[in-house]
Computed example of a mutant assay.
Amino acid sequence: MSDRVDHIETWVFDLDNTLYPASSNLFDQVDRRMGEFIAARFAMAPDEARLLQKKLFREHGTTLRGLMTDHGVAAADFLDFVHDIDLSVLAPQDDLVTALEALPGRKLIFTNGSERHAERVLGHIGIDHLFDGVMDIVGSDYVPKPAAAPYDALIARFAIEPARAAMVEDMARNLEVPHRLGMTTVWVAGGPDWAQPDDTAHIHHVVHDLAGWLSERARGRIT
Rank of each mutant, 00 (worst) to 15 (best):
V177F: 02
D14H: 00
D94V: 07
P192Y: 09
V5H: 07
N174T: 06
V5Q: 09
L51W: 04
T185Y: 15
V134H: 00
Q53F: 09
G191K: 05
M167C: 10
E101D: 12
E216M: 09
G72M: 11
D84P: 02
T10E: 04
V121C: 06
W187A: 00
I203C: 08
G72V: 06
I127M: 08
L64M: 13
A189D: 15
V177P: 01
P146W: 00
P92D: 10
L103S: 11
H83E: 15
A156F: 00
G72E: 14
L122A: 08
T18K: 09
H129G: 07
E48L: 06
T111K: 03
A76V: 09
L26S: 14
I137T: 03
D77W: 08
R157M: 09
M167I: 06
S215H: 14
D209W: 01
D136P: 07
I203K: 09
Q29R: 03
D31I: 05
D141N: 13
G113E: 01
M135P: 01
L51Q: 13
V207H: 05
N112M: 05
K145I: 06
E161S: 13
V168H: 14
L214S: 02
S114P: 01
D152L: 15
G61F: 04
F131C: 04
I8H: 01
L175G: 03
F27E: 06
H205I: 07
I127H: 04
L122I: 05
S140Y: 00
G139K: 02
G212S: 08
V188G: 10
D6G: 09
G72N: 13
F78W: 04
D198A: 13
P192T: 04
L122R: 05
V12D: 10
D70M: 12
A211W: 13
Y20K: 10
G190Y: 03
L154F: 02
V121R: 03
A102Q: 14
D84E: 15
F57V: 03
A102W: 10
G190M: 03
T98I: 06
F81M: 07
N174D: 14
T63S: 01
W187H: 15
A172I: 08
A118I: 04
Y20W: 08
G123P: 07
R221Q: 14
A102S: 14
A102D: 10
P21Y: 10
Y20G: 06
G61L: 07
D70F: 05
G123Q: 11
P197W: 05
G191Q: 05
A43M: 09
L181W: 02
